[in-house]
Design a protein around this nucleic acid. Sequence first.
DNA 1: AGCAGAATTGCACAGCTGTGCAATATGGTC
DNA 2: GACCATATTGCACAGCTGTGCAATTCTGCT
Lengths: 343, 343
Amino acid sequence: MKQDKLDKSRGKSFVSAQQVAERAGVSRSAVSRTFTDGASVAPATRKRVLQAAEELGYTVNHLARGLIREKSNIVSLVVADINTPYQAKMTEALTRRLQAANKVAMIINSSGESTDVEMALRQTLHYRADATIVLSGQPKASLIETCLNNGQHVILINRDDPVPGPVSVIVTNRAAARQAFDMLERAGCRKLAVIASTVGSASLAAREKAFVAAAQSANIDVSVSRLGPTAYASGAEAARQVLSGADRPDGVFCVTDLLACGFLDAARNEFGIKIPDELCVVGFDDIEQAGWSSYELTTFRQPIEQIAEHVVDLIDHHTPVDAIQDPIRFQAEPVWRKSVRPR
Amino acid sequence: MKQDKLDKSRGKSFVSAQQVAERAGVSRSAVSRTFTDGASVAPATRKRVLQAAEELGYTVNHLARGLIREKSNIVSLVVADINTPYQAKMTEALTRRLQAANKVAMIINSSGESTDVEMALRQTLHYRADATIVLSGQPKASLIETCLNNGQHVILINRDDPVPGPVSVIVTNRAAARQAFDMLERAGCRKLAVIASTVGSASLAAREKAFVAAAQSANIDVSVSRLGPTAYASGAEAARQVLSGADRPDGVFCVTDLLACGFLDAARNEFGIKIPDELCVVGFDDIEQAGWSSYELTTFRQPIEQIAEHVVDLIDHHTPVDAIQDPIRFQAEPVWRKSVRPR
DNA sequence: AGCAGAATTGCACAGCTGTGCAATATGGTC
DNA sequence: GACCATATTGCACAGCTGTGCAATTCTGCT
């Protein structure tokens, strides 16, 4: 019996609806309808079809289905640096929820050469993805336009650069940066620094600007460091530059937890500085490591699950693209740990 | 001009080869051939087609192409816990390389309910993926069999359970675990512990077993702790249990860097233990955090890039499934940092 | 010019499905 | 049993592409 089954199907190509129909003694339409929600099939026929399908190992060919329905159920995810804690978390949430909504995520790694990325993003179009979610990276505006022109849903996450055209944008609130300043100011810090990055996406730049603006309007001294990408090493390097000078800051805002971890480590292990007694540090994102007991970083949590839920909702209901004008905003809430002195 | 272009295409459905053919004044076949490698088209025709395609924003429909060629160029990636540093790194490497090989990765999150996973894995079949790469999780053997029966390439990474049938398996060498024992033994440790996890995949179990075996055959005392999943918190919890007893171990092997980080933090911050003076710790994976200056963890590096390269190669050349019998093995090399005393 | 050989082109079919439409079967009611 | 409404089924077409085959055009040579 099993041997029989193997001989027939092992290594062979896929089974088509035609074959199932023949085995079940019905028309191919009946098979198609059995696997189509809301189609009209007699219970008896349905049962026979399912039985035959089971025996043959039939699976609806979504390539063909997508072709005729003009809806592939594929959603492509453009993401750079998946191995970064924040991006990984977001990717996990999105894929999980897409999957629950009966969609499937196609992942486009935008870390490599820009021409590679361009080619990869084109895959989005090739496979007629229903939507494209851009997590990061700087894909050419022209490509995004192409996606839009082909009637694709494009959703940008955490890129609040003012893109013209009907693009749904979702940004994390920059009020958080002002709140970060408040934290440090109330903790008694009087000389501040903000650690940003050179490849900064617009949303990182926004955090930086908002923090600086808040400090200046309160007449508190603030310096800005931008070296390297948004990574642990950059944070450590920044600490070396900022802390080796004569007048050290006593409060630091890192636009990313990853930078903050690097900064903290260098500050403590290379300069012997006590946190938070001599220096307060605030991060952003609330990645897992921020909660590790070597860091206990006070930071801001992005509501990743909410964002993911909303995005998938957006795709599912496929609200007409032109309707959405304003970016949808989510609040980042503070997470108090031990890298900032309590009042 | 631009306005014109927008009016024609914005929000409309995709352009077909037929339309391009009409605009270029050639047959549809010519269009198809223009976008097919190695097909015969006159340079002049080709140029006209490309021009027309550009103007209309034409893109080959890979759903249709996959349908007729019986090769979708889709590779599905089954992965649990993408937000885990090791998995994220592997995912990054694989997607990058697949992309470079002109394939596209479809990601299947196997964290959720097992029925969800089953449904998701079925997507692999729906979309006629050329291959399925299983990074982790315990997908039912029956599903893997289904993939195989439909002529799919299945590649298991780091699951050295002896799966019957023609499955290409890639495992990281368990000799590393013995080497870990050697490190600790030479550092003078005489009472060992190994920290594993309850959900242990077969490859984690292998590390644990090999370490214990090595210790026992050297007549050195060794205890085993398994609590919770392979995560930071489990490592910390294990430290609390192991270190609160009367006779503490002086050498610990954590089957995962994540466990090791948790263990280290708890040992130092909750028990005030000096590393490596009073206690030596060895990890596995060489995740990024292992190199952070708060940890400086001595560990074993999995050759992720090599593995990814090999896997993609395997898929690209599509060696006949039945040919491969033995799992391909890669060496994990030790990375010396500061959590183990030098000899 | 004439001719052979090569290069190019168009036709038509195949690959697998969803669905409108007409035909048929089913069920209920008088 | 006749009739009507409804549920089910099969036919045939559409959706977009790749490719074998035959027909056509082009190239080079005598």
